[in-house]
Write a protein that binds this DNA or RNA. Structure first.
Length: 596
DNA sequence: CCCCCCCC
């Protein structure tokens, strides 16, 4: 049987400096391997070995095509047609980056006995320079329709090196050009610290293969800040590529670009470079996201609040701040906070549609949103979601009574119960070092009481009915409160209860103060104190009844110093019965997401 | 070489 594969394709790739054009080769998958370094977003990346029946060659799957792996159509022995791809050279090795493919419904085994082209080439180097056009035979066999390769980006008289896909950039290459759209541009930021001072800006660049952040310092600000316009496409070359510090950005790339004095940036008229892609979360579904997660949101700006200012607790610096309210078809409203210049310059009081990319989810008052430095906003974007939203708002939306996250607790049940998606295991709380920072961290965990400390579970507090609650001392003449300067015949005991709680994988000690401890034990500290002093049976009954109970705990983690040791203290702020129905629904939803 | 993303 004749091979269905495009014999000669691997040789064609190997011998061409640029991506062969007008070729849609049919190739067989020899292996699919998940790479150890996933993209910054956590997206998996796959390396795929492709065979043309004679040779095989390495390829990478553009992450937006991962669904072909997930649904099983890109598996060992599958035969695919590459409908779109680019090639590049990494340290002399050729790599195909797959941008589009069609499965060819092949059900057979491995075709032919393909050899490693790199090894063959090393043993038998081609006589012609790599820049030579491919042999006609190879091109023809690979299915080339017409035309020379030739995709070197150049302007008159200046060679800028081969055109690279963003996904193919790495610190090991220095001669490259990308053609990319600026999807985000920061303000110019000035800094000053012990290492010096200066100014900088950054942009997010995007092409059909991926995105990358680029930063320019000092002179590069003067040279390029005005030139690089948000939304425009540019040729960019002769810049440095560094390892990205991913903790500071949500841009999906291992690397980032640093503009230098000799960097070349040229505007480009080609509008085929893709626009920003959004993955909108409806406002009504923000509750399904974790606090601090980044998301895309589109909404009608229903309210614009006054410009305000806050002083950062961390830096003591003032920040301009403005809240706006967004609504959408879900009937839900959410507050979004703008900062700095974006807050000062926001003047859209005519209920526009705005699309936000990369805004941070907060949990203040249920759910809130905050602009992140790398977040972008597009007023009246020319996209389907915006037209739909506008149509709905003009027809019905304007007269809708929107549910607000901030006062949703009265209508949406007990807000003290954490949403299933927000729960952390005890192990996660420790792994994430919650409470180890300067500020307290808040989280919710579902855990079972394993042990209740029975010594010193309470302290004698001031009996003043105004709720002084300060510790009092028995001076033989009554219990003296130093704050109230009053003596009481008896104190009121208040709990400081230590509980050891555990979930399936871990445990920790937590502290419950009076109200929560009363709820957990079903007795006041005064009652328990009385039991302890007389009827041990009752005391044990209270303790045993509470032990083994499972709660959703709202926790605060905060570090303090104790005997010169820094330690994290976990305090229970609220305890509630777990909402097993909601948790099951959440799990079912996660399962559905996996299988679609 | 920044890297803070804040407040209530």
């Amino acid at each position: 049987m004749a091979s269905p594969l495009s014999a000669g394709f691997c040789e064609l790739v190997f011998q061409s400096t640029d991506t062969p054009e007008n070729v849609q080769p049919v190739l067989q998958v020899l292996s699919v391997k998940k790479i150890n370094a996933p993209a910054a977003s956590g997206t998996d990346r796959y390396r795929i070995i492709l065979s043309d029946g004679e040779y095989f060659i390495q390829s990478m799957l553009a992450t937006q095509l991962n669904n072909f792996v997930d649904d099983g159509s890109l598996a060992k022995n599958a035969v695919i047609k590459l409908t779109s791809f680019v090639t590049n050279a990494v340290q002399g090795r050729k790599l195909v980056i797959i941008l589009g493919l069609e499965n060819q419904s092949w059900t057979g085994d491995k075709i032919g006995n393909p050899a490693n082209l790199e090894q063959s080439a090393a043993a038998n180097p081609p006589a012609a320079a790599a820049a030579a056009p491919p042999p006609p035979a190879a091109a023809a066999r690979a299915g080339a329709k017409a035309g020379p390769p030739g995709r070197t980006a150049s302007k008159p008289g200046k060679d800028m090196g081969p055109l690279y896909p963003i996904e193919g950039l790495s610190p090991y290459q220095n001669k490259w050009t990308i053609k990319a759209r600026v999807t985000q541009k920061s303000e110019i930021k000035h800094w000053s610290n012990q290492r010096g001072e200066g100014k900088l800006f950054s942009v997010t660049l995007m092409d059909e293969t991926g995105e990358i952040r680029a930063t320019g310092f000092n002179e590069a600000v003067d040279n390029f800040y005005e030139l690089l316009q948000e939304g425009k496409v540019f040729f960019i070359s002769r810049a440095r590529i560094n390892i990205a510090k991913k903790q500071f950005s949500n841009v999906n790339n291992e690397y980032e670009i640093m503009f230098e004095n000799q960097s070349e940036i040229e505007p480009c008229d080609d509008e085929t470079v893709p626009q920003v892609k959004y993955n909108f979360t409806p406002i009504g579904e923000l509750g399904n996201l974790q606090k601090d997660e980044l998301c895309d949101v589109i909404g009608i700006v229903k309210e614009v609040h006054e410009l305000g200012s806050v002083t950062s607790k961390a830096t003591q610096k003032p920040f301009a701040k403005r809240d706006i309210q967004l609504v959408d078809q879900s009937g839900q409203a959410v507050r979004l906070t703008l900062w700095g210049k974006q807050a000062e310059n926001f003047e859209h009081n005519d209920e526009p549609v705005i699309a936000f990319k990369g805004v941070k989810v907060g949990d203040f008052g249920g759910r809130s949103l905050s602009m992140f430095s790398s977040a972008t906003m597009m007023v009246e974007p020319q996209i389907g979601e915006a037209y739909a939203l506008r149509g709905w708002y003009d027809a019905n939306g304007r007269s809708t009574n929107f549910q607000s996250y901030t006062n949703s607790s009265a209508t949406k049940g007990d807000s003290s119960v954490a949403k299933p998606s927000e729960l952390k295991t005890i192990g996660q709380a420790k792994d994430e070092q919650l409470g180890m920072g300067d500020k307290a961290d808040y989280f919710s965990t579902e855990a079972t009481i394993a042990f209740i400390k029975q010594e010193s579970f309470s302290y004698p507090a001031c009996a003043n009915p105004d709720g002084c609650n300060k510790k009092v001392l028995d001076n033989g003449d009554g219990w003296l409160c130093e704050k109230c300067q009053k003596s009481w015949p008896n104190p009121i005991h208040r709990y400081i209860l230590s509980l050891n709680v555990m979930d399936y994988a871990g445990s920790f000690w937590i502290t419950a103060f009076n109200e929560v401890a009363e709820q957990i034990l079903g007795a006041t500290a005064n009652e328990l104190m009385a039991f302890k002093n007389g009827q041990d049976v009752e005391f044990n009954r209270v303790i045993q009844k509470a032990t083994g109970q499972t709660y959703t705990f709202q926790m605060m983690a905060k570090q303090d110093q104790y005997n010169d040791q820094i330690r994290v203290r976990y305090q229970v702020r609220k305890a509630a019965s777990p909402d097993y129905a909601a948790e099951s629904a959440h799990l079912a939803q996660l399962i559905n997401q996996m299988s679609t």
